[in-house]
Amino acid sequence: MDMRDGREAAVVGIPRALAAYKYAPFLVAFLEECGFKAVVSPPTTSSIVKEGSASCVEDICVAVKVLFGQALRLRDGVDLLLVPRPVKVEKRPHDTFTCPKLMAAPDMLRHGLRDLPPVAEFLVSGGREPLLRGCMGLAKKLKIPPWRAYRAYRKAYAAGERYFRLLRSGVHPTKALESAISGGNPEDGLLAAGNGDPTVAVIGHPYLLGDGHVSHHLLERLRGLGARVLTSCMYEGLGGGCIPVPIPPLSWSYERELAESAALLSRRGDVDGILYVTSFGCGPDSLVLEMLRREGIVRPGVPFMELVLDEHDGPSGFHTRLEAFVDMLRRKRRSF
Protein backbone atom coordinates (compact mmCIF):
# COMPACT_ATOMS: atom_id res chain seq x y z
CA MET A 1 0.00 0.00 0.00
CA ASP A 2 1.61 3.23 -1.06
CA MET A 3 -0.11 6.16 0.49
CA ARG A 4 2.53 8.78 0.62
CA ASP A 5 1.28 10.88 -2.29
CA GLY A 6 4.33 13.06 -2.34
CA ARG A 7 4.81 13.51 1.36
CA GLU A 8 7.80 12.35 3.34
CA ALA A 9 6.20 9.52 5.22
CA ALA A 10 2.72 8.07 5.29
CA VAL A 11 0.79 8.86 8.46
CA VAL A 12 -0.77 6.00 10.33
CA GLY A 13 -3.37 6.83 12.95
CA ILE A 14 -4.16 4.66 15.94
CA PRO A 15 -7.46 5.46 17.63
CA ARG A 16 -6.96 5.72 21.38
CA ALA A 17 -9.54 3.12 22.31
CA LEU A 18 -9.98 -0.52 23.25
CA ALA A 19 -6.89 -2.65 22.70
CA ALA A 20 -4.79 0.37 21.77
CA TYR A 21 -4.37 0.77 25.51
CA LYS A 22 -2.40 -2.46 25.36
CA TYR A 23 -0.61 -2.21 22.06
CA ALA A 24 -0.29 1.44 21.08
CA PRO A 25 3.28 1.98 22.41
CA PHE A 26 4.40 -1.19 20.71
CA LEU A 27 2.76 -0.25 17.44
CA VAL A 28 4.00 3.31 17.47
CA ALA A 29 7.55 2.12 17.94
CA PHE A 30 7.14 -0.48 15.22
CA LEU A 31 5.73 1.95 12.68
CA GLU A 32 8.25 4.68 13.36
CA GLU A 33 11.04 2.17 13.02
CA CYS A 34 9.62 1.15 9.66
CA GLY A 35 9.62 4.71 8.41
CA PHE A 36 6.03 5.70 8.96
CA LYS A 37 4.73 8.52 11.01
CA ALA A 38 2.48 7.18 13.73
CA VAL A 39 -0.06 9.27 15.58
CA VAL A 40 -2.28 8.22 18.42
CA SER A 41 -5.51 10.16 18.67
CA PRO A 42 -5.79 12.60 21.57
CA PRO A 43 -7.41 11.64 24.88
CA THR A 44 -11.17 11.28 24.82
CA THR A 45 -13.32 14.35 25.27
CA SER A 46 -17.05 14.70 25.55
CA SER A 47 -17.34 15.73 21.91
CA ILE A 48 -15.51 12.58 20.85
CA VAL A 49 -17.92 10.44 22.83
CA LYS A 50 -20.84 12.37 21.41
CA GLU A 51 -19.68 11.90 17.83
CA GLY A 52 -19.02 8.26 18.51
CA SER A 53 -22.45 7.61 19.96
CA ALA A 54 -24.08 9.40 17.07
CA SER A 55 -22.37 7.23 14.48
CA CYS A 56 -22.67 3.92 16.31
CA VAL A 57 -25.61 1.74 17.34
CA GLU A 58 -27.23 2.91 20.55
CA ASP A 59 -26.95 0.03 22.97
CA ILE A 60 -23.32 -0.87 22.55
CA CYS A 61 -20.84 -0.34 25.37
CA VAL A 62 -19.25 3.05 25.77
CA ALA A 63 -15.81 1.67 24.91
CA VAL A 64 -16.91 0.96 21.34
CA LYS A 65 -18.49 4.37 21.05
CA VAL A 66 -15.17 5.88 22.03
CA LEU A 67 -13.52 3.82 19.29
CA PHE A 68 -15.92 5.24 16.72
CA GLY A 69 -15.45 8.76 17.98
CA GLN A 70 -11.68 8.47 18.01
CA ALA A 71 -11.61 7.03 14.52
CA LEU A 72 -13.72 9.92 13.27
CA ARG A 73 -11.37 12.34 14.95
CA LEU A 74 -8.45 10.87 13.03
CA ARG A 75 -10.31 10.71 9.76
CA ASP A 76 -8.84 13.70 8.01
CA GLY A 77 -5.26 13.76 9.11
CA VAL A 78 -4.11 10.24 8.36
CA ASP A 79 -3.59 7.94 5.40
CA LEU A 80 -4.38 4.76 7.22
CA LEU A 81 -6.03 3.72 10.42
CA LEU A 82 -4.50 0.94 12.44
CA VAL A 83 -6.63 -0.97 14.90
CA PRO A 84 -5.36 -3.89 16.97
CA ARG A 85 -7.40 -7.03 16.82
CA PRO A 86 -6.51 -9.23 19.79
CA VAL A 87 -7.87 -12.75 19.45
CA LYS A 88 -5.63 -15.28 21.11
CA VAL A 89 -3.32 -13.32 23.32
CA GLU A 90 -2.15 -16.01 25.73
CA LYS A 91 -0.75 -19.47 25.48
CA ARG A 92 -3.18 -22.01 26.76
CA PRO A 93 -4.10 -25.49 25.66
CA HIS A 94 -7.67 -24.44 24.88
CA ASP A 95 -8.97 -21.72 22.62
CA THR A 96 -8.93 -18.30 24.15
CA PHE A 97 -10.59 -15.15 22.97
CA THR A 98 -11.10 -11.59 23.96
CA CYS A 99 -14.38 -9.76 24.02
CA PRO A 100 -16.13 -10.14 20.63
CA LYS A 101 -16.14 -6.40 20.27
CA LEU A 102 -12.37 -6.26 20.48
CA MET A 103 -12.10 -9.10 18.01
CA ALA A 104 -14.36 -7.32 15.55
CA ALA A 105 -13.18 -3.77 16.13
CA PRO A 106 -11.58 -3.31 12.68
CA ASP A 107 -14.64 -4.83 10.99
CA MET A 108 -17.00 -2.51 12.78
CA LEU A 109 -14.99 0.49 11.66
CA ARG A 110 -14.61 -0.74 8.11
CA HIS A 111 -18.24 -1.51 7.50
CA GLY A 112 -19.92 0.71 10.03
CA LEU A 113 -18.42 4.10 9.24
CA ARG A 114 -18.34 5.86 5.93
CA ASP A 115 -15.56 7.96 4.45
CA LEU A 116 -12.88 6.55 6.62
CA PRO A 117 -9.32 6.05 5.45
CA PRO A 118 -8.51 2.38 4.90
CA VAL A 119 -8.43 0.42 8.13
CA ALA A 120 -5.52 -1.94 8.69
CA GLU A 121 -5.45 -4.34 11.56
CA PHE A 122 -2.82 -5.65 13.89
CA LEU A 123 -3.88 -9.22 14.46
CA VAL A 124 -2.72 -10.95 17.61
CA SER A 125 -3.77 -14.51 17.15
CA GLY A 126 -1.67 -17.19 18.76
CA GLY A 127 1.42 -18.81 17.36
CA ARG A 128 4.73 -19.06 19.09
CA GLU A 129 5.37 -15.33 18.91
CA PRO A 130 1.95 -13.76 18.52
CA LEU A 131 3.27 -10.22 18.30
CA LEU A 132 5.88 -11.07 15.71
CA ARG A 133 3.26 -12.85 13.67
CA GLY A 134 1.03 -9.82 13.90
CA CYS A 135 3.88 -7.56 12.82
CA MET A 136 4.70 -9.70 9.83
CA GLY A 137 1.08 -9.63 8.75
CA LEU A 138 1.03 -5.89 9.07
CA ALA A 139 4.36 -5.54 7.26
CA LYS A 140 3.02 -7.49 4.33
CA LYS A 141 0.07 -5.18 4.09
CA LEU A 142 2.23 -2.08 4.31
CA LYS A 143 4.88 -3.48 1.96
CA ILE A 144 7.66 -3.39 4.49
CA PRO A 145 10.42 -5.90 3.73
CA PRO A 146 10.49 -8.71 6.30
CA TRP A 147 14.03 -8.07 7.51
CA ARG A 148 13.18 -4.49 8.26
CA ALA A 149 9.98 -5.51 9.98
CA TYR A 150 11.87 -7.99 12.11
CA ARG A 151 14.36 -5.39 13.21
CA ALA A 152 11.56 -2.99 13.99
CA TYR A 153 9.77 -5.68 15.91
CA ARG A 154 12.75 -6.17 18.20
CA LYS A 155 12.85 -2.47 19.00
CA ALA A 156 9.09 -2.26 19.37
CA TYR A 157 9.04 -5.22 21.69
CA ALA A 158 11.33 -3.39 24.05
CA ALA A 159 9.09 -0.34 23.89
CA GLY A 160 6.05 -2.44 24.67
CA GLU A 161 7.83 -4.01 27.59
CA ARG A 162 8.78 -0.59 28.89
CA TYR A 163 5.14 0.43 28.83
CA PHE A 164 4.07 -2.66 30.71
CA ARG A 165 6.81 -2.06 33.25
CA LEU A 166 5.47 1.43 33.83
CA LEU A 167 1.98 0.06 34.33
CA ARG A 168 3.19 -2.63 36.67
CA SER A 169 5.05 -0.11 38.77
CA GLY A 170 1.73 1.52 39.52
CA VAL A 171 1.90 4.57 37.30
CA HIS A 172 -1.43 6.07 36.34
CA PRO A 173 -2.43 4.26 33.11
CA THR A 174 -3.15 7.49 31.24
CA LYS A 175 0.24 8.92 32.10
CA ALA A 176 1.98 5.65 31.38
CA LEU A 177 0.47 5.54 27.91
CA GLU A 178 1.27 9.17 27.30
CA SER A 179 4.88 8.79 28.33
CA ALA A 180 5.32 5.54 26.43
CA ILE A 181 4.06 7.13 23.24
CA SER A 182 5.72 10.50 23.41
CA GLY A 183 8.69 9.61 25.53
CA GLY A 184 7.99 11.99 28.38
CA ASN A 185 8.69 11.31 32.01
CA PRO A 186 5.71 9.98 33.92
CA GLU A 187 6.22 12.43 36.77
CA ASP A 188 3.91 12.29 39.76
CA GLY A 189 1.96 9.57 38.04
CA LEU A 190 2.54 7.06 40.77
CA LEU A 191 -0.82 6.08 42.16
CA ALA A 192 0.41 3.76 44.86
CA ALA A 193 2.75 6.28 46.44
CA GLY A 194 2.64 7.09 50.14
CA ASN A 195 0.57 5.35 52.72
CA GLY A 196 -2.78 6.87 51.99
CA ASP A 197 -5.85 6.16 53.94
CA PRO A 198 -7.51 3.95 52.82
CA THR A 199 -6.05 1.83 50.03
CA VAL A 200 -8.48 1.15 47.21
CA ALA A 201 -7.92 -1.40 44.49
CA VAL A 202 -9.54 -0.50 41.20
CA ILE A 203 -10.22 -3.27 38.73
CA GLY A 204 -11.23 -2.63 35.18
CA HIS A 205 -10.16 -2.73 31.57
CA PRO A 206 -7.26 -0.42 30.81
CA TYR A 207 -9.34 1.32 28.18
CA LEU A 208 -11.78 2.31 30.89
CA LEU A 209 -9.35 3.14 33.67
CA GLY A 210 -6.95 4.91 31.35
CA ASP A 211 -9.66 6.99 29.74
CA GLY A 212 -10.04 10.00 32.00
CA HIS A 213 -13.20 11.29 30.41
CA VAL A 214 -15.07 8.02 30.29
CA SER A 215 -14.08 7.01 33.82
CA HIS A 216 -14.94 10.48 35.16
CA HIS A 217 -11.33 10.83 36.30
CA LEU A 218 -11.89 8.09 38.80
CA LEU A 219 -8.27 7.52 39.71
CA GLU A 220 -7.39 11.17 40.24
CA ARG A 221 -10.57 11.57 42.21
CA LEU A 222 -9.61 8.75 44.52
CA ARG A 223 -6.18 10.29 45.02
CA GLY A 224 -7.90 13.58 45.72
CA LEU A 225 -9.94 11.92 48.42
CA GLY A 226 -6.71 10.90 50.08
CA ALA A 227 -6.77 7.26 49.06
CA ARG A 228 -3.89 5.18 47.90
CA VAL A 229 -4.79 3.48 44.65
CA LEU A 230 -3.79 0.14 43.20
CA THR A 231 -5.12 -0.89 39.82
CA SER A 232 -5.54 -4.09 37.90
CA CYS A 233 -3.17 -2.58 35.33
CA MET A 234 -0.41 -3.43 37.77
CA TYR A 235 -0.89 -7.06 36.86
CA GLU A 236 -0.72 -6.27 33.16
CA GLY A 237 0.75 -9.13 31.21
CA LEU A 238 1.92 -11.08 34.25
CA GLY A 239 -0.10 -14.04 33.09
CA GLY A 240 -1.37 -16.32 35.82
CA GLY A 241 0.81 -18.26 38.22
CA CYS A 242 0.38 -18.49 41.98
CA ILE A 243 -3.25 -17.39 42.03
CA PRO A 244 -4.52 -18.26 45.51
CA VAL A 245 -7.99 -19.42 44.44
CA PRO A 246 -9.18 -21.47 41.51
CA ILE A 247 -10.30 -19.16 38.73
CA PRO A 248 -13.20 -20.52 36.71
CA PRO A 249 -12.19 -21.60 33.22
CA LEU A 250 -12.73 -18.47 31.19
CA SER A 251 -11.96 -18.20 27.53
CA TRP A 252 -11.87 -14.40 27.62
CA SER A 253 -8.22 -13.62 28.26
CA TYR A 254 -8.65 -10.06 29.47
CA GLU A 255 -11.50 -10.94 31.78
CA ARG A 256 -9.43 -13.74 33.14
CA GLU A 257 -6.68 -11.26 33.84
CA LEU A 258 -9.13 -9.07 35.69
CA ALA A 259 -10.43 -12.00 37.70
CA GLU A 260 -6.87 -12.95 38.59
CA SER A 261 -5.98 -9.46 39.66
CA ALA A 262 -9.17 -9.31 41.72
CA ALA A 263 -8.12 -12.51 43.47
CA LEU A 264 -4.62 -11.21 44.13
CA LEU A 265 -5.53 -7.67 45.09
CA SER A 266 -8.29 -8.69 47.48
CA ARG A 267 -5.81 -10.89 49.29
CA ARG A 268 -3.19 -8.23 49.76
CA GLY A 269 -2.98 -7.16 53.35
CA ASP A 270 -2.96 -3.47 52.51
CA VAL A 271 -6.11 -3.37 50.38
CA ASP A 272 -9.18 -2.02 52.16
CA GLY A 273 -11.73 -2.19 49.41
CA ILE A 274 -12.26 -3.08 45.78
CA LEU A 275 -13.89 -1.09 43.03
CA TYR A 276 -14.86 -2.87 39.86
CA VAL A 277 -15.28 -0.54 36.93
CA THR A 278 -17.36 -1.76 34.05
CA SER A 279 -19.19 -0.10 31.22
CA PHE A 280 -22.91 -0.11 30.67
CA GLY A 281 -23.97 -3.16 28.75
CA CYS A 282 -20.59 -4.84 28.94
CA GLY A 283 -21.04 -8.44 27.88
CA PRO A 284 -18.28 -10.45 29.54
CA ASP A 285 -18.28 -8.41 32.74
CA SER A 286 -21.93 -9.13 33.43
CA LEU A 287 -21.10 -12.79 33.96
CA VAL A 288 -17.58 -12.44 35.31
CA LEU A 289 -18.82 -10.14 38.07
CA GLU A 290 -21.24 -12.82 39.21
CA MET A 291 -18.45 -15.36 39.30
CA LEU A 292 -16.17 -12.98 41.20
CA ARG A 293 -18.77 -12.46 43.85
CA ARG A 294 -20.26 -15.88 44.13
CA GLU A 295 -17.22 -18.10 43.78
CA GLY A 296 -15.18 -16.34 46.42
CA ILE A 297 -12.61 -15.03 43.99
CA VAL A 298 -12.76 -11.66 45.67
CA ARG A 299 -11.96 -12.56 49.26
CA PRO A 300 -15.26 -12.64 51.14
CA GLY A 301 -15.43 -9.79 53.61
CA VAL A 302 -13.52 -7.29 51.49
CA PRO A 303 -15.84 -4.38 50.60
CA PHE A 304 -16.63 -4.60 46.92
CA MET A 305 -18.41 -2.08 44.77
CA GLU A 306 -19.28 -2.06 41.14
CA LEU A 307 -19.21 1.18 39.20
CA VAL A 308 -20.98 1.33 35.88
CA LEU A 309 -19.77 3.82 33.31
CA ASP A 310 -22.27 5.24 30.92
CA GLU A 311 -21.90 8.15 28.56
CA HIS A 312 -25.27 9.56 29.61
CA ASP A 313 -24.60 9.83 33.31
CA GLY A 314 -22.84 12.91 34.57
CA PRO A 315 -19.91 12.66 36.93
CA SER A 316 -21.72 13.99 40.01
CA GLY A 317 -23.67 10.88 40.99
CA PHE A 318 -20.60 8.85 40.27
CA HIS A 319 -18.44 10.95 42.53
CA THR A 320 -20.98 10.84 45.32
CA ARG A 321 -20.88 7.07 45.28
CA LEU A 322 -17.12 7.16 45.24
CA GLU A 323 -16.93 9.44 48.25
CA ALA A 324 -19.39 7.34 50.17
CA PHE A 325 -17.33 4.26 49.44
CA VAL A 326 -14.08 5.85 50.56
CA ASP A 327 -15.73 7.19 53.71
CA MET A 328 -17.07 3.77 54.48
CA LEU A 329 -13.63 2.22 54.08
CA ARG A 330 -12.12 4.87 56.29
CA ARG A 331 -14.66 4.31 59.05
CA LYS A 332 -14.14 0.59 58.81
CA ARG A 333 -10.40 1.09 59.20
CA ARG A 334 -10.78 3.32 62.22
CA SER A 335 -13.08 0.91 63.96
CA PHE A 336 -10.43 -1.77 64.02
Partner: peptide, 11 residues
Protein backbone atom coordinates in the same frame (compact mmCIF):
# COMPACT_ATOMS: atom_id res chain seq x y z
CA UNK B 1 -26.91 -6.23 25.00
CA UNK B 2 -26.05 -9.10 22.69
CA UNK B 3 -22.41 -8.82 21.67
CA UNK B 4 -22.08 -10.60 18.30
CA UNK B 5 -25.39 -9.33 17.00
CA UNK B 6 -24.66 -5.77 17.98
CA UNK B 7 -21.50 -6.08 15.95
CA UNK B 8 -23.57 -7.29 13.01
CA UNK B 9 -25.90 -4.41 13.66
CA UNK B 10 -23.15 -1.93 12.99
CA UNK B 11 -22.34 -3.68 9.71
Amino acid sequence: TCMPENICRTI
